[in-house]
Design a binder for these strands. Sequence first.
DNA 1: CAGGGATGTCATTTG
DNA 2: AACAAATGACATCCC
Length: 931
Amino acid sequence: MYLKKYLTEGLIQVAILLSLSGTRVDVGLEPGLLSPLHEMMLGPSAGITQTQFHNLWNHLEDGQPSHPKNVDLDGFTSRRLLGLVRSLDRLQVPNTELEAWLVHREPDMLPGEHHGQPAPLERAHVRLEEDIAGPGLNPGDILRIQGENETGRDVHTEGGELDESPRPLSEWSQGSAWSDRSQQEETHRRVLSDHQMYSNSLDEEEGEMGDGAEEEEDQEEEPASRSERERRDSVSDRESAQNDEEQESLSLQDCLRLLEHTFPLTHQPSEEILPAIGGAVDHEYLSAERGPLLSPLIPSEQPPLDLELQWEDLLAIMEPHGLDVSTRFPSYQDGPVQTPLDAAILSNYQSNSNSRNDNQMIYQDVHLMEAALPLGTISLHHPETRLLPLAPSTELDQHNMSLNLSEALENMDVNSSPRTPYHTNLISGDPLDDLNMGVDVENGYTAFDMNPLTQDAEDNLITDNTGLGDPSNFDINFYPNDFTSASLIPQELSGANPNLPILPLSHLLVDDEEEGDYGLAGPLGDLLEDATILEEMSLLDLALEEGFSPEMAARLEEEGYLVPEQANRNTGPYDTVMPDNEEDNGGTSWSRMAQGGSRTLRHESGEKADSDSGLSLDCSFSPASPCGSESSCYSSSSSSSSSSSSSGSSEGGLYSEENDQKDEEGEINLDMELEVTIKQEEEEGAVGGYYSSDVNKMVPSSYQEEKLNGLPWQEHIGHDHSYNQAWPSSPTSVTGKTSKKKSKYSSRQSRTKSYSRSSAEQFVEAELWNRDDRRAQSLKIPFSNELIINLPVDDFNELLANHRLNEQQLNLVRDIRRRGKNKMAAQNCRRRKLGALQGLEVDVSGLRRRRAWLRREKQEALKSLQEMEQRLEGLYQEVMFSLRDEEGRPLDATDYALQFGANGSVTVTPRRQGTLPRGDSKGGKKHRDKK
DNA sequence: CAGGGATGTCATTTG
DNA sequence: AACAAATGACATCCC
């Protein structure tokens, strides 16, 4: 009955998902595709799990109640465990897929994220929620629906043929990410509760930790997690205390109930059982939340030591998200690397999206918890339940709140790691409080944020300020940093998820924790890198919005994050100024040798100012400033980075002295058409942010000149004879040549060359450049090489047509054009290569981190599985112990087994041979226990 | 002096 | 078919 309903619902949701994005199809295919990852994560156990499950489900499908034979403790335990395991599987695998999916979308989303529409995923989510919950639903309804979905899922699961098959359609429809995450969280939570209730000694944990299975990275991570734990101990205490109380209050009856509903949890539609339980016991929802079975049973067993474990679990839950966040986002951000290849590569692994989603998911989970608990719904057991909260959000009028919250949350995002305690509170806090929070998210949130943020904020300030040096950046930094997750928040909020307010916080915390965990533990460096990247990103944002300050620019450049455009903005002015200098150089080339040193100094002081003014070819070009000469070029270049100015100047001096020839050559190029120059500048900007960073390094005047010649004054300088004198071999610049040498090409070259090049190198290059130039001169080519190289084909042909050139000249011109083009092409090609390399490196680091995380997850899953087994065993024993046979004697667990009926009934049946691993059949009595 | 990095150039391929 | 762009390979220069 429900099955049908859910199935339909799920299908619809799936359809929606698919329709939203073709990419999502991949997600849908996930089950099949993921096998490798799945295996990796689950290991051999996965297969086992599957098999058993399938068998189990088959029984159910057949409609046959589990046969008494099957009702053995082992069977029960195994089923339960398997269910848990499976849930774990689902959690992880889908996450991966989801992340991948998100990665694809990440780039697109970034720009508009803040204010634009919700990301596709989010939108989809909203829609799904709408579908599920409908406009008029209230939180309670939502919860119920969730439960139903769960049921549906279970049904599907039962029929599942594949590992993944069990995943309910609803799950997929809602976005595997969400569901997965929620599931994962659920699982972790269970584990956590388990820890609390049945705590295993720290020793155990330690031992497990020390398994050594984890690799370097994992081990590295350990310290971090521990520190985190310690940090949060204070908070955890609260949590644990609360849990203890709850636990103690539970009785054997509760245990039985738990068993009953636990069993169904995996094997039957949860709806049947859950509602009953939820309604019956008020406090159960708590237990259910934390750990369906165990918590109530053995309160005494929970030692304070568990706090550690709890934290561990909590961390584990959070870690996954954090990793991703830190990892890739930066990579995408790096403008310089934006080559297609990079984009493609990065797209696959962008963690940002992941983090975002993760965060969202987490948030949802939290919210769900909070919202659900008050209601007393047991449906919480299922991860999916958490997904539902989103639906209500749409209906609720949280938009305004969400907006406000989003800001606060964003802030929080940045600093999330330290706040773990808060997160914990949210999760474990008093249900009522949680409920309230759901309603009054805003207030709660803000309050929340403020404290936690403070510290982080300071950190951020410090970091950010380094770059910006402006206190005002405080806020800005936060947002930019949050770029990843924060940016999403608005969307989410817009999605009108009532719970959202909470989400951000939780997700923030999660991220941070993860980050912190990871950062500390594993590749600390990576983490730092990420942080740095975020920082850079923030800087970039700021810069983009407000313009670059010299320090910022320098810093960005250093970091290599300055995107071409940005670079241009940044250095553009300088570059533009450079032309002046160059021109000057050209004009004064004759006087360079004498003036060299003094000029340099002068430029540093005065010309810098000019450069700052920014612009202008026209102004600076004034031929009147010949004295500026080549040194000016250097100064200009140096000006871009103040630090290098001195060195640059000195170099400039040397250069001027040593290389008049070069200067001459450069001067030859001086005569460029202004238009061309401008164009070049633009193009360079597009192409060459890359080089901007290196402007500091002295650029040979020749290059600079090439870059900048303005036609107007070229006339003056273009014909500078001194230049010719200096270089007798080369014919005095043909007017055309002289005037036109500074095309884009030259400018590019200048930048290119300027990029990390020593003066000597530059000289060499200048010579090379001049090679063609000289040839052109020797053949009296009437136009500049730049022109030759950069003119469009048509224009070029026209040019040739206009100037009657002999065969030799034509050949030379064509060669010059070809070589020049090729040179630029080669430069671009190399740049791309570098970019691709960098991107790959980023990817590799990200993948390494992810691998480490997955391994750790696996370890933890295994650990939790073991714990569950133990607890289950204990619980079973306890239950059996509480039962009496006809004669009032306690039942022997080895002789009797609990059998769970489809209707939620629990039956005690004697074990029989074959059916029960533990014991032989004894004639038994049936004790029927209803819940 | 060898090795590495940066750059230019040529030849070739690709779109 | 012409052209531009991309790229591998080689040469050169410099550190």
